[in-house]
Structure formats: C-alpha cells, structure tokens
C-alpha cells in the first residue's frame, strides 16, 4: 500500500546512523525534487527522484560523482550545507527525502517552509552551529561509516567517534508530536468547537 498521508510516519526518539554528506549551500527544493516530478496525485515513489538532476544524467544513467551514487556513503541522516531547503514550498521535497530513507537532516541553517514541512511528515531537521557542521563533514570525510547519534528527547547530536556533542532547538509541541508520531490534524480536530466559535466572529 502506498503511503497516502502523513499519519504513517514513524515515531522518532534516538537515531544512530552513519550519514550522507552534501556540503553545498542553498540547496533549494527544485534540486531536491524538480517540478516535473510533482505530477502524482498520490504520495508514492518520490524517493526515486530525490536530487534527480544531480543524481542522473539526461539518459537516466547515474552520475558517478554524486554522493547518493557512491556506495561508500549511506545512512538515515542527510547532512547539508547552509540554507538547506530554500525556494518552493513543495512538501514533495520532504516526501522525497523521507521516502528515500532519511529520517533526519542536519544543517547550519534551514529555510522556514522546508523545516515546517519536514516536521509535519516526520523528518527531524537538526540545526547545528557552522563549526559543528564542519566537524561533522570532517568526521565523515575521515571515515564515511562514522556514526552520528541524534537524541530527540535530550535534544542533542553527537559525533560518536569523537564524542563531540551539540544541543539543538525544537519547540516542545513539535518534539512531543515527533516522539509520539502525532500530527497537527488530530490536534486541530480536537479543538473544532473553539475554531467554529472563532470563525463565526471572523470579518471575512
């Protein structure tokens, strides 16, 4: 069965995994998933077209120098350069990342809409300092199998090989949702009366 809505996301507590490095700044959602792949009316198979034009040549053969085509790198964590996810609001970008198998994206800076979309579908965006991001890239360069531990309850990210650690921010509400696999629609449905009363007074 295809996943047709985001209720199907996994709970997130502690994730320990190797990571895929993408040290490019301003990775926009048109790169994450080009518009021509947004034509589905169901949410399925977006992972196949993640980073499509960086990953494949026009004849669909894989571009060997792109990181996702390098078997040395794998894992559930994607580490991107500054200003990750800018541009279009397409949630398909987050779907593509999730469907490919990532559960967490690490960067020193995220675009707003991408960050919100990620949280809504069960990807944890972890914002670290520029220095810590560099250290992660260095650690992966030294050993592609190096593992990171992302601990959501504690709000920490650790480079396991060196023990270097940083904490990250997330609001309490979203944290609770991610840990429990809850989503906003359930919350909003539960306050329907309050919304109706509000709507009745609305000017428009």
């Amino acid at each position: 069965m295809p996943i047709t809505n985001k209720m199907a996301y996994d709970k997130f507590t502690v994730l320990r995994s190797s990571a895929v490095p993408l040290p490019i700044e301003n990775v926009d959602t048109d790169q994450i998933i080009p518009a021509r792949f947004l034509k589905a009316t169901e949410r399925k198979e977006f992972g196949d077209n993640l980073f499509r034009d960086w990953r494949y040549n026009p004849d669909n053969s894989p571009k060997e120098d792109f990181i996702l085509n390098n078997p040395v790198y794998s894992g559930k964590i994607l580490v991107g350069g500054k200003n990750f996810g800018s541009g279009s609001s397409r949630e398909h970008a987050a779907w593509a990342i999730y469907d490919y198998g990532f559960r967490c994206v690490v960067s020193s800076f995220f675009a707003d809409i991408f960050k919100g979309n990620s949280l809504n579908i069960g990807i944890l965006p972890v914002q670290v300092s520029a220095e810590f991001l560099d250290r992660i890239f260095t650690a992966i360069e030294a050993d592609p199998k190096t593992e990171l531990e992302v601990n959501l309850p504690e709000q920490t990210i650790t480079i396991l090989a060196t023990g270097e650690q940083e904490s990250f921010d997330i609001n309490g509400y979203k944290k609770h949702n991610m840990i429990n696999g809850f989503d906003d629609i359930d919350y909003l449905q539960a306050m329907k009366d309050e919304v109706n009363t509000f709507a009745a007074k609305s000017l428009y």
Binding site: S89, R90, I113, G116, N117, N120, I121, D184, I185
Partner: peptide, 9 residues
C-alpha cells in the same frame, strides 16, 4: 505558502 500537510489542515 504552505506544504501539503498544511493544505489538509
């Protein structure tokens, strides 16, 4: 602008 989950909301 919003994402599709928010469109559903």
């Amino acid at each position: 602008g919003i994402g599709t989950s928010e469109v559903e909301m």
